[in-house]
């Protein structure tokens, strides 16, 4: 097991290197630079800015400089947020996104899994159609519609909860963004759980269990649930990485100081160092979560083993 983990972690190094290299050069190929704004800067000023960020050096030189700094854990200064290093920005924003994402995932699992199981058990009944119809709506309606709607109804009209702001992570400020973040996940998880549960319920070992005379609840809880969770689990790896790194829509609408906004804004601003920082961070997170998911597989399914 340990050697398997080590092997996977070692394999992550070339993966990340390729991701970094491709991103670095793709970013530079994109037209427009960090200092292209409403007014073209006078050449003297542009030269000063380019020199300040080493952008006046040849590209391969810049790449080597970046990689050298990265090896020392230095992501460099942000072009737009000049008072902060990229490391600062991620370190300050990630805990917020993580906290929000944690509650959103928890909520999504707590609601999505039972809904999926119920729909599977009541297959092709009114209950099934109601659950799946609602889930489809949850998938179809995008974040940027749900979030302002929640803010308008519960914040402005009913005035039950603040419409925005973080306020140091007070629970009142977290309720609406957590709901907005989790709605789509609830829908995905419920649909996936239903499909996988139906498949498992049709398999031979369930028929055997029922033939042994086990009660239906025992069949489901002891025998069907665990294997039915596998597809959901493999979805959760990348999904969690996506959710705990924030969402630009949710953050902007509710004014949350997470890191989701950096993924979009940094690219639009051509904030090269911040783009690279978010890419490396997200890449590493995906690799890590995929590894954890694979390890959990072996817990849920005894047929999967990582022994040598």
């Amino acid at each position: 097991m340990l050697s398997y983990i080590l092997k996977r972690l070692l394999m992550a190094i070339p993966t990340l290197l390729i991701v970094i290299t491709i991103s670095f050069f793709l970013m530079r190929i994109a037209p427009g630079g960090p200092f292209d704004g409403e007014r073209q800067l006078p050449p003297e000023i542009e030269a000063n800015l380019m020199a300040a960020y080493h952008l006046d050096e040849p590209l391969p030189m810049q790449y080597l400089r970046y990689m050298g700094n990265l090896l020392q854990g230095d992501f460099g200064p942000s072009f737009k947020y000049k008072d902060f290093s990229v490391t600062d920005l991620i370190a300050q924003g990630f805990p917020v996104s993580l906290e929000l994402g944690f509650w959103a995932i928890l909520l999504a699992l707590m609601i999505g899994l039972p809904l999926g199981v119920i729909a599977a058990l009541k297959r092709n009944t009114a209950v099934d159609y109601a659950v799946m119809g609602t889930a489809l709506a949850g998938i179809a309606v995008p974040n940027f519609v749900i979030a302002p709607l929640l803010a308008l109804v519960f914040g402005v009209t009913l005035a039950w909860l603040p419409v925005g702001g973080w306020n140091g992570g007070a629970w009142q400020n977290m309720v609406l963004p957590v709901i907005a973040l989790s709605i789509q996940q609830i829908a995905y998880i419920a649909r996936m759980m239903r499909a996988s549960m139906i498949e498992v319920l049709g398999s031979h070992f369930i028929r055997t269990a029922r033939a042994k005379g086990l009660s239906e609840s025992k069949v489901i809880l002891r025998h069907a649930l665990q294997p039915a969770l596998l597809p959901v689990l493999s979805y959760l790896g990348p999904a969690i990485a996506g959710i705990i790194t924030g969402s630009v829509v949710i953050e902007q609408i509710f004014g949350i100081p997470g890191i989701g906004r950096y993924f979009v804004q940094a690219a639009l601003n051509r904030d090269y160092t911040l783009v690279m920082g978010t890419v490396v961070f997200y890449g590493a997170l995906i690799v890590l979560l995929n590894l954890i998911v694979d390890l959990l597989y072996s817990v849920l399914d005894p047929q999967i083993r990582y022994d040598d």
Partner: peptide, 17 residues
């Protein structure tokens, strides 16, 4: 407060925040 989204700013203004 750094509020970029004009709609959010309007909501927060309406709720006296």
């Amino acid at each position: 407060y750094p509020i970029e989204d004009a709609g959010s700013a309007l909501n927060r203004f309406r709720t006296d925040a």
